[in-house]
Design a protein around this nucleic acid. Sequence first.
DNA 1: GGAATGCATGGAATCGATTACATCGACGTG
DNA 2: CACGTCGATGTAATCGATTCCATGCATTCC
Lengths: 342, 342
Amino acid sequence: MASIKDVAAAAGVSVATVSRVLNDHPSVSAAARTRVLAAVRDLDYRPNAVARSLRTDQTRTLGLVISDVMNPYFTELARSVEEEARALGYSVIIGNADERPDLQDHHVRTLLDRRIDGLLVSPTDGGSPLMLDAARGGTPMVFVDRWIPGVDVPVVRSDGRAAVRDLVAHLHGLGHRRLAIIAGPAATTTGRERVDAFREALALYGLDLPGAYVGQGDFQAESGRRVTEGFLDLPEPPEVVFAADNLMALGALDAVRARGLRVPRDIALAAFDDIRWFVHTDPPVTAIAQPTGELGRAAVRALVDRVEGRPGASVTLPARLVVRRSCGAPPAENPAKNRSTS
Amino acid sequence: MASIKDVAAAAGVSVATVSRVLNDHPSVSAAARTRVLAAVRDLDYRPNAVARSLRTDQTRTLGLVISDVMNPYFTELARSVEEEARALGYSVIIGNADERPDLQDHHVRTLLDRRIDGLLVSPTDGGSPLMLDAARGGTPMVFVDRWIPGVDVPVVRSDGRAAVRDLVAHLHGLGHRRLAIIAGPAATTTGRERVDAFREALALYGLDLPGAYVGQGDFQAESGRRVTEGFLDLPEPPEVVFAADNLMALGALDAVRARGLRVPRDIALAAFDDIRWFVHTDPPVTAIAQPTGELGRAAVRALVDRVEGRPGASVTLPARLVVRRSCGAPPAENPAKNRSTS
DNA sequence: GGAATGCATGGAATCGATTACATCGACGTG
DNA sequence: CACGTCGATGTAATCGATTCCATGCATTCC
């Protein structure tokens, strides 16, 4: 592969001049510029990004460490992150932590070794020493979706409290009184917050959230299934199961179906995180939708701000309730809500 | 951030010795080794992968250019690719082409600039000059899922012909005679092959595939919807719609539902590519399942073989039919087939 | 006309690693 | 005892870019 030296030789100039042409530095004669450009074309020359990065100490690359790529919510997040980054002239390297702290650490370490310019993380746990060090050590960093309390890093996330209140109002209005939740891992902020929001919303209606109605999940489908089976085995099973993410809702659906029961006739179901498939499930699932694309784009903007020396602020966007049929009573008000928005 | 020089100074040795310790070269005294290791620990030193790559001319990174990350099939493929690559000591940079040749080219170019060691591609089109050049120019490369005919690059894919025959047998057995297909882009191998396989299978039963029953899609949900609407508008609509990928099946489901029709009562539906959500749709969708994880792993192995100087062979794995309820007649034989395999 | 200014250009240092080659001392052998 | 061998180590070149500094030349201004 041709290097800058070959181009210089072919154009009859020094490597310095070639470099200047490539970075369009003003001080190059038109003659030299055209000769260099011709040589570049002839040799099919492309600058070696590795060498450039070594010298300039910037890779124009962002790292994204995500909790679980197979979760459609995170897939969409990753997609929007890559799009916005590309628009700003950055590439993205994605690391899939699969909800495992050790894998998360592995990816953070590799990304740091590669000297990425900035790091976008949705932490799987309370934060490894490695990540804490990185944050303190000056690596530009932004948390997205989840965050680690007490670390001075901007957070881009959505606030589901209002939407959870709407959901509980909806459920209460349908006559449901025994409401249960499949929680996410307590080590994650979203895991804790969604339970808290749910409990607070219930309190507004004078409803209690007994310990037996809080099942510990891990944001994966299998745990949703397991917890739901536990709920169904209770002497007094809940009337509604609220899953703290879409995969656990899927597991819950499996569990209900495996018992030969029907949603919402025998038990109602709602989920945090709306995904396009929920329109097509049997029945369509009522869910709380985050503005995923917006989150991804805002996170990249905040991170790039940091990378390029600007402040880079936290962002909180509201989530909203999308009513479908999984809690009973079809949404008579506005059928358009049921359509996929693609 | 500490460099190898700092470590050398702290340990009282030369950078060469530090490098030897790090790459465990035999010729280092035990005393020097321990001093270096101590310095590494003290300084929290991590070798700069950029500098190392420049010198050694290898990045231990693979590029994966995928047609569409939002398609669960490709998401799963990407995940298995990353896993296998990690096991072999490589990182993966994913580029999402979104079925757009220009984006595909953009990613290939960036990856090449970054001097990735090898490239895994599921081409969106017949092949840009850029990719052809890269293939000829010695960049280790492997095609996965789709490929470009006439290019000397190993292909890792699955053969759906037998499964398509099984599907047509199943449909014929259920009494369906008017079968239509939503095809993928003619520029892709999978787009063409699936239509061919379908036509051939129909021929075995003396059935024809009229032009009106072949709708041109682009592997995206919206095209599935559009094509299906066209089918439903026909004076004699088909009894079955076979979508050449899962997203177009989703669009077809939308279109059918929008008319107030029911699957499979009014029209049957089948899809290429099985995804976990098909278990939960209304009704569960009969699909052809590829061994996605195996494909991803085999592709990485083939690519790494090439990168490391070994031959690297093509692999073809069989797909299989998974019968559910979207074509009529519940699968009485074996209810286990209906369960999600997680 | 001479000094000053500015532009175009090239030489060489530099980024942080790896590695060929040189050096040096210890040891074994004839 | 002299010489060859081998292991441990350091010096310096190298990868492919960017960029500081010096130089040469033309233009401008007094």
